[in-house]
Structure formats: structure tokens, C-alpha cells
Amino acid sequence: QNEKLANELKSLLDELNVNELATGSLNTYYKRTIKISGQKAMYALKSKDFKKMSEAKYQLQKIYNEIDEA
């Protein structure tokens, strides 16, 4: 289960640069939040902690959705 979550989180991290570029014309909230979420996700992957990875995955998905809707 950890392996599956780690792969999903890696996949979301692969999209980080594209989504970060998409924040160029948006409010600074999005820029700041996506950077923080990305850092948390990288830390969670290194720690291999299921709870941290779950939270990081949720945060990344949430900010990606917010950027898409903005």
C-alpha cells in the first residue's frame, strides 16, 4: 500500500513544474501554496511515512484543482 501511494505521489510531483508555471498570472497564494505543497511531498516521499504521504498527496491534488479552476 505504501508503494502504491508513493507512486501516486511521485506522479503528482512530476506535474509540479507544469502547475507551478500555470500560477504565473495567478494570485501569490497559489505560487506560495504549490511550492510549499511540493516541498512537503518530497519530504514525505523521503520519510516513507504513510500518513505524511497521504496528507501531501491530498494537498497537491487540492492545489492542482484550485489552479485548474482559477
Results as ranks from 00 to 15, higher is better:
58 Y>G: 06
28 T>Y: 13
31 K>T: 05
56 A>L: 04
53 M>D: 00
52 K>V: 06
62 K>P: 00
29 Y>K: 05
33 T>W: 14
43 Y>M: 15
12 L>M: 05
49 D>S: 07
29 Y>D: 04
27 N>A: 11
32 R>V: 13
49 D>I: 04
16 L>I: 06
60 L>T: 01
18 V>I: 11
61 Q>D: 03
32 R>C: 14
9 L>H: 00
33 T>H: 10
51 K>W: 10
30 Y>H: 04
18 V>K: 15
5 L>A: 03
33 T>R: 13
60 L>W: 00
17 N>D: 11
33 T>Q: 15
24 G>P: 04
19 N>P: 04
56 A>D: 00
7 N>H: 10
68 D>W: 15
42 M>P: 00
10 K>G: 03
12 L>F: 02
37 S>A: 15
12 L>S: 01
55 E>C: 10
59 Q>N: 08
6 A>T: 07
11 S>V: 11
7 N>W: 10
31 K>V: 07
60 L>E: 01
25 S>E: 09
23 T>H: 07
24 G>K: 14
17 N>L: 14
48 K>A: 06
6 A>F: 14
62 K>H: 07
57 K>R: 07
64 Y>E: 02
15 E>S: 11
1 Q>M: 12
42 M>R: 12
15 E>C: 14
11 S>G: 07
33 T>D: 03
3 E>A: 08
5 L>H: 01
12 L>N: 00
58 Y>F: 11
12 L>D: 00
16 L>W: 08
51 K>F: 10
4 K>F: 08
51 K>L: 10
23 T>Q: 06
15 E>Y: 14
29 Y>G: 03
5 L>T: 03
33 T>I: 14
65 N>R: 15
54 S>T: 13
68 D>H: 15
48 K>T: 04
37 S>R: 08
45 L>V: 03
55 E>W: 11
41 A>V: 03
63 I>S: 01
59 Q>M: 13
63 I>C: 02
6 A>H: 06
26 L>A: 03
1 Q>G: 07
41 A>C: 02
38 G>F: 14
65 N>E: 10
30 Y>R: 03
69 E>Q: 13
19 N>H: 15
38 G>S: 12
53 M>E: 00
54 S>N: 10
19 N>M: 15
27 N>R: 08
1 Q>S: 09
24 G>N: 13
23 T>R: 06
46 K>Q: 12
2 N>F: 15
38 G>M: 15
2 N>Y: 14
53 M>L: 03
46 K>G: 05
70 A>E: 05
65 N>F: 08
26 L>T: 03
1 Q>E: 12
9 L>Y: 01
6 A>Y: 15
64 Y>V: 06
58 Y>W: 09
33 T>G: 06
30 Y>A: 03
67 I>R: 02
27 N>T: 10
60 L>G: 01
38 G>L: 15
64 Y>N: 02
36 I>T: 06
58 Y>I: 13
25 S>L: 11
24 G>E: 14
2 N>K: 12
2 N>M: 14
6 A>K: 05
58 Y>Q: 11
61 Q>I: 13
61 Q>L: 12
23 T>Y: 06
14 D>Q: 11
40 K>I: 11
66 E>H: 05
17 N>Y: 14
5 L>N: 01
21 L>Y: 08
30 Y>D: 03
22 A>N: 08
33 T>P: 01
60 L>H: 00
53 M>V: 01
38 G>D: 01
7 N>R: 14
33 T>Y: 11
59 Q>C: 14
64 Y>M: 12
63 I>K: 01
46 K>T: 09
66 E>R: 06
26 L>N: 04
41 A>E: 01
48 K>Q: 09
30 Y>V: 04
40 K>R: 11
14 D>A: 12
41 A>L: 02
8 E>D: 08
14 D>G: 08
55 E>H: 06
30 Y>S: 03
15 E>Q: 14
42 M>H: 08
40 K>T: 05
10 K>A: 08
45 L>C: 02
23 T>K: 07
22 A>I: 12
23 T>L: 08
52 K>E: 13
70 A>K: 06
58 Y>H: 11
28 T>D: 15
14 D>I: 07
44 A>F: 01
33 T>A: 15
9 L>C: 00
50 F>I: 08
26 L>V: 03
42 M>Q: 09
26 L>D: 04
50 F>L: 06
23 T>E: 04
12 L>I: 03
56 A>H: 01
31 K>Y: 09
46 K>A: 12
64 Y>K: 11
7 N>M: 13
62 K>W: 06
1 Q>K: 09
43 Y>G: 08
57 K>N: 03
66 E>A: 07
34 I>F: 04
19 N>D: 04
27 N>I: 05
19 N>K: 15
28 T>C: 15
36 I>H: 06
39 Q>E: 10
29 Y>T: 03
29 Y>R: 05
19 N>V: 14
5 L>W: 02
37 S>L: 15
5 L>I: 07
15 E>K: 14
52 K>S: 08
57 K>W: 07
2 N>R: 13
45 L>Y: 07
44 A>C: 02
27 N>F: 04
17 N>T: 13
16 L>P: 00
48 K>G: 14
66 E>Y: 06
51 K>N: 10
17 N>G: 11
26 L>G: 04
41 A>S: 02
22 A>H: 09
48 K>S: 05
6 A>N: 02
48 K>N: 12
32 R>E: 14
54 S>K: 11
30 Y>Q: 05
38 G>T: 12
46 K>W: 09
69 E>M: 13
58 Y>A: 13
65 N>T: 10
32 R>T: 12
9 L>W: 00
36 I>S: 06
55 E>L: 09
42 M>I: 11
8 E>W: 04
10 K>F: 04
49 D>N: 08
11 S>Y: 07
51 K>H: 09
60 L>K: 00
35 K>Y: 12
24 G>S: 13
69 E>N: 10
47 S>A: 07
59 Q>G: 06
27 N>H: 12
18 V>C: 13
56 A>M: 04
27 N>V: 05
57 K>T: 04
10 K>T: 05
70 A>F: 06
6 A>L: 07
5 L>P: 00
69 E>V: 12
31 K>H: 05
66 E>G: 03
56 A>K: 01
60 L>N: 00
44 A>Q: 01
8 E>K: 04
48 K>L: 12
23 T>W: 10
22 A>G: 05
68 D>P: 04
25 S>N: 11
18 V>Y: 14
68 D>Q: 15
1 Q>F: 09
66 E>W: 10
8 E>F: 05
63 I>A: 03
69 E>K: 13
9 L>E: 00
5 L>V: 05
40 K>D: 05
57 K>D: 01
47 S>H: 06
35 K>V: 08
55 E>G: 03
60 L>Q: 00
24 G>Y: 10
11 S>L: 12
8 E>V: 04
59 Q>W: 15
52 K>C: 10
8 E>H: 03
30 Y>M: 07
47 S>W: 05
62 K>C: 11
59 Q>P: 01
26 L>F: 04
69 E>T: 09
10 K>Y: 04
59 Q>I: 09
12 L>C: 03
8 E>P: 01
55 E>Y: 08
35 K>H: 07
42 M>F: 09
63 I>V: 05
48 K>Y: 08
4 K>A: 09
3 E>K: 07
50 F>E: 06
25 S>A: 11
62 K>M: 07
53 M>C: 02
2 N>H: 11
23 T>D: 05
54 S>R: 11
12 L>K: 00
25 S>K: 13
13 L>V: 05
20 E>S: 10
67 I>D: 01
29 Y>E: 05
7 N>Y: 12
3 E>I: 09
44 A>L: 01
